[in-house]
């Protein structure tokens, strides 16, 4: 593995650790539903920015880790992230050239699909009904995207420069 490979891998791992941390930091009940889908956003960013590196399979494995962390059914987040990475891979060329607002809209839709899938599984296989406010995270995710994009782009440039 050449040093450049190691560096981008470092950047990806670093951003994922940050995302996992932010996803599990305790928040007050009232704002908890507004928590952005941090890990999903990070996976999506890398799928768009480095499609040849962040593939469907790596996203799937990250999802398994997220399942373990959240105590969800194994495969639940995994499938969601695989879907995100897949859509990111397919549309990365288009998404990259979109203006920021449009990008946020597309990202919001992709995250929405993910959240919808999560909600569906929670409510069909879980023993308790999750409120639909679970989907509010989509909104904050879309709003967060431009900032996250800038931060991660900076990280990527430093890593791959």
């Amino acid at each position: 593995m050449n040093p450049l490979d190691l560096r981008w891998l470092g950047a990806v791992v670093l951003s994922l650790i940050a995302a996992f941390t932010l996803a599990t930091v305790p928040l007050p009940e009232a704002v908890n539903h507004w928590r952005p889908a941090w890990i999903a956003l990070t996976v999506l960013y890398w799928a768009i920015a480095l499609p040849e590196r962040m593939g469907v399979l790596s996203a799937w494995f990250i999802g398994i880790l997220a399942d373990v962390m959240h105590g969800a059914l194994l495969g639940q987040h995994a499938l969601g992230f695989a879907l995100i990475a897949y859509l990111g891979l397919i549309y990365h060329q288009r998404i990259r050239v979109y203006p920021m607002v449009q990008q946020a809209l597309v990202v919001g839709s992709i995250i929405f699909l993910h959240q919808l899938w999560m909600l569906m599984i929670y409510n069909t296989l879980g023993s308790r009904h999750y409120p639909n406010t679970y989907l509010l995270g989509t909104l904050t995710s879309a709003l967060l995207w431009p900032w996250l994009f800038v931060v991660l782009r900076d990280l990527r440039r430093r890593a791959t420069a």
Binding site: V56, L57, W60, A78, L79, A82, Y86, L89, I90
Partner: peptide
């Protein structure tokens, strides 16, 4: 990617049900 994605979906459903 499509083939991989389909594989992931199948494996995920299997894992979820197990």
């Amino acid at each position: 990617p499509t083939a991989r994605f389909i594989t992931c979906v199948v494996v995920s459903f299997f894992l979820i049900s197990v």
